[in-house]
Amino acid sequence: MIEFIVFSLLNGLLYGMLLFMLSSGLTLIFSMMGVLNFAHASFYMLGAYFAYQISTWVGFWPALIIAPLLLFIIGAVVERFGLRTVHKYGHVAELLFTVGLAFLIEEAVILIWGRSAPDYRIPDLLDAPLFTLWATNFSMYRGFMLLVAVCMFAALYLVLTRTRIGLIIQAALTHPEGVSALGHNVPGVFMLVFGGGCAMAGLAGVIGGNYFITDPGMARMLGPIVFVVVVVGGMGSLTGAFVASLLLGAIQTFAIGLEYSLSDLFRLLGMSPGFQGGILKDLFRIQIAHTGPILPYLIMVLMLIFRPKGLMGTRET
């Protein structure tokens, strides 16, 4: 049992940190600009592909720096020439613009790198176990991923609390109109934040692309899970996004260990399972363990219905 708990915690922590890398940028963008960026996962994919390409030329370590920088530039350009043009047509247009962008990025990736997965590998240096617990290895690369995520969190925290631009961003998170009324260059801040968010997604792509799989479907595969973090964490709260990421990571990993279904519950309550026929009989068969990856969406829906502010949000919309 203790083995299960320790490993679930470790796995949950790692998954949560990855989620946070992806969703922190999205939370910033969403809270400040009100844009649900559907292309966010595409920037994650671009990060992985750039890292693959750069690592075939100059190796993994430079890629770790260069790929996010490239994405920062791309993100800033998209904000400046795309989103800002669409901004005047309202949030729906902005959102649909990012949907279209996701289409185009996927096609561009296919056109450049082909339809099949490139061979983007973990660097040899990190391809070894870090420590072994109860015969299960914890690899160095996973340790490295954790380290990168923690460093990114620390850097983000410092930038937001210790620098002038960070303070403006923080203010803009909760009171966007007020900040612009004070005479700050809000569009410029938007561009910076959008670029920064894309760079973080790109960094997640660099270290996630080889741990998982880099292929043209990876953005689609990631799906809307990042939105769940934003919603559950709450608008305008980075801490909320952090907590939500870890929570979702933990919930998903722990759920996998729980092999109980509705019929078990009824048996526990001493009720006979006689009515479990008909069209909904499958409902009783499904174990919690099978539902792990879809639980987040259930949580998101319930959260929006009962507590639209999210865990730590400062406002509703």
Binding site: G34, L36, H91, L95, P224, F227, V228, V231, Y297, L298, M300, V301, L304, I305, P308, E316, T317
Partner: peptide, 12 residues
């Protein structure tokens, strides 16, 4: 609610 909460609920 309309707006983003509705959009996200429908997504979920």
């Amino acid at each position: 609610r309309a707006g983003t909460p509705f959009a996200l609920i429908s997504l979920g």
